[in-house]
Design a protein around this nucleic acid. Structure first.
Length: 655
DNA sequence: CAAAACTGCCTTTTT
DNA sequence: GGCAGTTTTG
């Protein structure tokens, strides 16, 4: 018997040993899902598959990293060569390789979320649609959903049910045009264009399908249309596809994920083996009981009942707090007590919340009590202004068509190129069907630019040249240095930030970008500006830095429920469990209450031993205090009826 | 014509 | 409590 099968329960072993044909592993929270995937991969290697034949797709970089590390622990060096990564990184590589087939230059850029936002705004402006009528954020979300459900701009226009839909559809058309003009792809395009390569170019698909003899997909419940079809294209023919997931943890419906994918796997792939993992090795009975009581209120489920392997533990607590700062104070104080008196480690505690903004109150309290914390997601390193500025420079160097980046830095640091001049160039670009950068060159060469703008633009060209020159020799650090020096970015930081503390903090961001550059230069096989930028775009959530030697720093974790999926902590606080937050107020309108319930379920099942939920009597919204009501999910959990005074979020008066 | 000061607007979740 | 858009100043 394979040593890899030792210590697995019957179901887990069944999943691992089913090496041929379609396999659906329905893995409830804490049932050893990651273990099954990694052991199965190691088992396949042991059975003679070469690592090159394995494809393991995940949704987050974090998950990919964990898989790789655990697989390395099991199989050692034998893993090298296996493809383990997010859908986006896999697609990115495929795109880079076949860019010309799609009419893209090799140096095509990748827009991140905030670039997408800027493009949507530009499109709205172009269409003279006021932002009050169509919120850029909402439009972007809708466009993204269109793309993730494989609805093109033309179809979107035709399908438009009301005025709002039509405006968004028209914005979608402009948005796509802008992407094309700027030779950039957004996150959604990475999947769509990779799918196009696979479905329309058999000479690309067939060798890949042949190569990847065993395909595995993690978190299958979160697969959206394009991802599903990519998987299908790769597994076509041999059908050796193993998907692992939990319909109760599908929380990405808003991104086009469709729970039906996992509910109907057996229809999609006839003859599929189905394995259910229902023994939970993570949580106490009390915690699982709470989780089960909540999730059973959802109508459409595969239907699993988690059995606790661990015994009884503490009761699940629900606390009422005056407001969010009291809530934060309480949580911070109790964690400190647990650390000091019970010798619990900071890293074993987490505070989870529905929306990223809820972190602020917690940060304030944790900081004042000197509790070390690690804020995951939210305002990331890549959202910082100075990092985004330099990134825009780099992207412009790689792809001068990238107008979003150009417009961002054209006058940062201030170099005397004002709005009037920029508008003129943009108008010219629109006329010529070119881009702002080219238009600037044309205008300058024609002597139609103000003197200062002419000088500055020429200096900018020189800066980008210097950057490209360094990058061409694989020296990413020098490339960044060249930019910083040429544009005198240090002076800009000094100018923009008055006090020494923020100034140092900001300049620090530049240093960290240099660290990334050094890292890439050292690790990448063939470091180019393009590969560096792709890594930066796709691993924006990278939180590997500032960790201890053993890989994890000892700090309390603060993160959203979405970010917490797949993780576990002995002590968990779930804060802000209120109508309007969890479930979120938008969910009532969108009819996604089931998804909010799954989110609650995800939160509850993160806890191993101690789970505390809390809600506030009132909380500040837009600077005003608003009365709050405990979440319906708390009543479901405690099997109680809400009192007469309770109001569901649907009936909240928004004054 | 460009930069600094000021005001009013929103805040779901992520690759 | 931040940022984008607007007004005011240089």
């Amino acid at each position: 018997m394979s040593r890899f099968l030792e210590g697995l329960n019957d179901e887990q072993r069944h999943a691992v040993e089913t090496v041929d044909g379609p396999l659906l592993v329905l893995a409830g929270a804490g049932t050893g899902k990651t273990r099954v995937i990694t052991v199965r991969a190691a088992y396949l290697l042991e059975r003679g598959f070469r690592p090159e034949q394995l494809l393991l797709a995940t949704f987050t970089n974090k998950a990919a990293r964990e898989m790789r590390e655990r697989l390395r622990g099991l199989a050692g060096k034998a893993v090298e060569g296996a493809t383990i990564g997010t859908f986006h990184s896999f697609c990115g590589r495929l795109l880079r390789e076949h860019a010309p087939r799609l009419g893209l230059p090799r140096g095509f850029g990748i827009c991140d979320g905030s670039d997408q936002q800027s493009l949507v705004k530009a499109a709205l402006r172009e269409l003279r649609i006021p932002e009050a009528t169509v919120h850029p954020r909402a439009a972007h979300a809708r466009i993204s959903l269109f793309k993730n459900t494989l609805v093109g701009p033309g179809d979107a226009l035709e399908q438009a049910a009301d005025d709002w839909d039509e405006l968004v559809a028209r914005c979608y058309v402009k948005y796509e045009e802008a992407l094309g003009r700027q030779r950039v792809v957004d996150f959604d395009d990475m999947l769509l264009k990779a799918l196009q390569l696979l479905e329309q170019h058999e000479d690309i698909r067939a060798p890949l399908a042949e190569r990847y003899a065993r395909v595995m997909v993690d978190e299958y419940q979160d697969t959206n249309g394009p991802q599903y079809r990519i998987v299908r294209a790769l597994a076509a023919g041999h059908g050796n596809l193993c998907v692992v997931g939990d319909d109760d943890q599908s929380i990405y419906g808003w991104r086009g994920a469709d729970v039906r994918r996992i509910l109907e796997f057996e229809k999609d792939f006839p003859g599929a083996t189905v394995v259910r993992l229902e023994t939970n090795y993570r949580s106490t009975e009390e915690i699982l009981d709470a989780a089960n009581k909540v999730i059973r209120n959802n109508p459409k489920r595969h239907g699993k009942t988690l059995r606790a392997w661990a015994g009884h533990g503490d009761k699940v607590r629900v606390l009422t707090m005056e407001d969010e700062s009291h809530e934060a104070q309480y949580v911070a104080a109790e964690m400190q007590w647990a650390h000091d008196s019970r010798e619990e480690r900071w890293r074993d505690m987490a505070v989870l919340y529905r929306t990223a903004t809820q972190a602020r109150a917690l940060e304030v309290e944790l900081r004042s009590m000197n509790v070390p914390y690690r804020l995951v997601g939210g305002m990331s390193f890549f959202d910082r202004k100075e990092v985004r500025d330099l990134l825009a420079y780099l992207r412009l160097a790689a792809n001068p068509h990238d107008e979003t980046s150009f417009l961002r830095i054209v006058n940062v640091p201030p170099r005397g190129i004002g709005k009037g001049t920029v508008d003129k160039a943009v108008a010219r670009a629109t006329e010529d069907g070119s881009d702002a950068w080219s238009a600037f060159r044309v205008l300058r060469d024609a002597g139609e630019l103000p003197a200062q703008a002419t000088r500055s633009f020429t200096a900018l060209e020189a800066a980008l040249d210097a950057c490209r020159h360094a990058a061409a020799h694989g020296r990413m650090v020098d490339a960044v240095h060249a930019l910083v020096a040429e544009v005198d970015y240090r002076a800009e930081v000094d100018r923009a930030y008055g006090d020494d503390v923020t100034r140092d903090l900001r300049w620090n961001g530049v240093g960290e970008l240099l660290d990334f550059a050094e890292n890439h230069q050292r690790r990448a096989k063939d470091p180019t500006l393009e590969s560096f930028l792709q890594e930066l775009a796709l691993e924006a959530d990278d939180d590997r830095k500032d960790e201890d030697d053993d890989g994890t720093q000892d700090a309390v974790t603060l993160m959203t429920l979405h970010g917490a999926k797949g993780l576990e902590f002995p002590r968990v606080y779930l804060v802000g469990v209120e109508e309007g937050i969890l479930p979120h107020r938008r969910s009532a309108l969108e009819g996604s209450l089931d998804e909010e319930r799954r989110l609650m379920y995800v939160g509850v099942t993160r806890a191993r031993e101690v789970l505390t939920l809390s809600f506030c009597a009132q909380r500040a919204k837009f600077g005003k205090a608003v009365v709050c009501h405990p979440s319906r999910f708390l009543f479901e959990m405690k099997e109680k009826q809400p009192p007469d005074t309770w109001l569901p979020v649907e009936q909240h008066v928004t004054a």
